[in-house]
């Protein structure tokens, strides 16, 4: 019988193998998805909020591949405290792909609100900025005649690491079934700028912010746990017995559970015999 440590190592190996994408296949499916989901609602253009981070960079590259660069608008929306290197990375990607771009600094429209909220926390400021960017990107989508493409990955959606009606808002999301580590694999396969792939992931909502410090666990570790727990359906107790750290496993599980509401439409009080999303169940494509 193997020790707990080696069982954890075996499971980690299993997770890494399971998380390894066939990037060529995935690219075909995801670009086809973008073309199809836009095409069937009468669109051929897309708008992406481009932060300079890896998720929006990958989405931008996929959209560009799917629709052609001239049909993709990348909107850069820095705030005064945003890291200047984020913008430099975003501009490098725009140049590489040849997509359309616009720069909208959100400082001037965000600060008047902040000025009236003297005790506002970093957390609240982050949410306000995310929602301000949502307003801007949706407005530009109307002007450009494109749909807003989502940039939240599976890891973030599961952990609830995103702002409802902010960065989580989109019309279609091509990377919502890719874990963060798979986003990295795809980004390498699509030859995105190395500076974007290699920098530490950050929501860039305040200076020096780091996702992995916020979460208290690295993306490599969290993806293994999420993959084993949800994709492979291991029990919590099996992961603990195998030797995964209790605090990590329990924390990840409780974050996923606590944030279930972010993955669902607002709950509707049931009165009638046929309530929307309960007995009223039509495919999304019904409307097309």
């Amino acid at each position: 019988m193997s020790s707990a440590g080696s069982r954890a190592a075996d499971l980690a190996k299993r997770a890494d193998a399971g998380l390894k994408l066939d990037t060529g296949l995935a690219k075909g499916i995801l670009t086809g998805f973008i073309r199809n989901e836009l095409g069937k609602v009468g669109f051929e253009r897309a708008v992406v909020a481009l932060s300079g981070g890896i998720d929006s960079a990958l989405v931008c590259a996929l959209a560009s591949k799917a629709l052609g660069p001239k049909n993709v608008l990348a909107v850069m929306m820095p705030y005064r405290t945003s890291n200047p290197s984020s913008r430099a990375d975003a501009e490098e990607l725009i140049a590489q792909l040849g997509v359309e771009s616009r720069l909208v600094d959100i400082t001037g429209m965000t600060n008047p609100y902040f000025d009236r909220q003297p005790d506002i926390s970093n957390h609240r400021r982050g949410n306000v900025m995310a929602r301000m960017r949502m307003i801007v990107v949706y407005d530009h989508s109307e002007d450009f005649g494109g749909l807003v493409i989502g940039t939240s990955n599976k890891t973030e959606i599961l952990l609830g690491y995103g702002t409802l009606f902010g960065d989580l808002a989109s019309a279609v999301n091509p990377i919502g079934d890719l874990f963060k580590t798979q986003v990295r694999q795809m980004s390498r396969a699509m030859s995105l700028p190395v500076s974007i792939i290699d920098k530490p992931p950050s929501a860039d909502l305040w200076e020096g912010q780091s996702d992995e410090e916020d979460l208290g666990i690295s993306y490599d570790e969290v993806d293994r746990i999420l993959y084993l727990m949800f994709d492979e359906r291991f029990r919590l107790s099996e992961l603990l017995e195998a030797g995964f750290p209790d605090e990590q496993v329990t924390k990840v599980y409780s974050m996923v559970r606590r944030n279930q509401f972010k993955r669902r439409p607002p709950i509707i009080a049931k009165i009638s015999d046929r309530t929307i999303e309960r007995e009223f169940r039509y495919p999304r494509d019904w409307g097309l």
Binding site: A17, G18, L19, K20, L21, D22, L25, A26, I29, Q182
Partner: peptide, 12 residues
């Protein structure tokens, strides 16, 4: 439905 892009296979 196509599923299973991971695991290193040459097809779904």
């Amino acid at each position: 439905p196509g599923r299973g892009v991971a695991g290193g296979g040459a097809e779904l």
